[in-house]
């Protein structure tokens, strides 16, 4: 077997996987803070990428200004969604909340297609150097940048939840809502904040993918790919989400290679994570780092 090719595949897997990890992290953030399984996570990427693209191409803003505007917009977007749609559903059964996010997902997917059309749109070029060599492998510079952005976001999460006051308040809420409330944490504010942060972080991932592959409705599939990652890592573990994302990313690329070399089934790139998902659910439903009190009888 060609080792260079394998290295290249693993590297590609890690780059994509890091992005899955970032999205999975923001998914877990919402789940931990407000016990909502967000099926509309992919639409955060989609909306964020389209808004940024619109700012850059239509208003001709420089990249930093367009990016900052996107972040501000997504903060507002996350808060508004939480307050208008999710807040009335607090205390409703799991299925209602899941269905509400599924409804949001369809709504925004169709809205984006309506506004921006169905064709993939490329971002204006940002990097002058197309590709660089790392350890004898050829890597596109956008991919390297995407890896850097992912690492930066993960570092930011770590700092936020270890040192900042708001991050600690969120952890307290996730641990025990009543105790957090009695210590003066405003739980509704924490819910809104978790949605805002999740939307912003996902939007950053969306912009990165958009710069690499162009913006299209395919972005919302990241929201589905996130499920194998979070189940593998454990639904309520942020570290697990990152690791799960990386593993799923590598698995995808290796599965595609195995498929192309020996099996010739086609489409393994898309489907392999879901086979893995079923296996994990059957063997170890709480994942690698999840809390074990999963509802199982």
């Amino acid at each position: 077997m060609d080792t260079t090719l394998l290295f290249q595949l693993v590297l590609n897997g890690l780059i994509v996987g890091a992005l899955y990890g970032v999205v999975a992290m923001s998914f877990v953030l919402i789940y931990k803070a407000s016990q909502v399984v967000n099926f509309a996570q992919g639409e955060f990427l989609l909306v964020g990428a389209w808004v940024c693209w619109w700012m850059l191409t239509h208003w001709q803003l420089p990249i930093w200004a367009g990016f900052l505007f996107t972040l501000a917009f997504m903060t507002l977007f996350g808060i508004v969604l939480q307050v208008i749609v999710l807040r009335p559903l607090v205390g409703e059964p799991v299925i209602s909340v899941i269905m509400a996010t599924v409804g949001l997902s369809i709504f925004f997917q169709a809205l984006m297609k309506w506004i921006f059309g169905v064709f993939a749109q490329p971002f204006p070029p940002i990097f002058t150097v197309e590709r660089v060599h790392v350890l004898g492998l050829e890597v596109q510079s956008v991919y390297l940048a995407s890896l850097g952005v992912s690492a930066l976001i993960m570092l930011g999460f770590w700092w936020f939840f270890t040192y900042s006051k708001h991050g600690l308040a969120m952890r307290a809420t996730a641990y025990d809502q009543q105790v957090a409330q009695s210590l003066g944490v405003s739980v509704p504010k924490v819910f809104a904040m978790s949605w805002a942060i999740s939307a912003v972080v996902s939007a950053v991932a969306g912009v990165v993918v958009g710069v690499v592959n162009g913006v299209s409705s395919a972005l919302s599939f990241y929201g589905i790919k996130v499920f194998p990652a979070v189940i593998l890592g454990g639904l309520d573990s942020i570290v697990g989400a990152v690791l799960g994302g990386l593993i799923i990313g590598v698995l995808e690329n290796v599965a595609q290679y195995v498929d192309a070399e020996w099996l010739n089934w086609g489409n393994m790139y898309q489907i392999a994570p879901f086979y893995a998902l079923i296996l994990i659910l059957l063997i170890k439903p709480y994942g690698l780092f999840g809390t074990r009190n999963i509802e199982r009888v």
């Binding site: 509400a100 599924v102 409804g103 997902s105 369809i106 169709a110 809205l111």
Partner: peptide, 8 residues
């Protein structure tokens, strides 16, 4: 599609 999502 939007009507479906909104109805839900």
């Amino acid at each position: 599609e939007m009507a479906i999502g909104a109805a839900i």
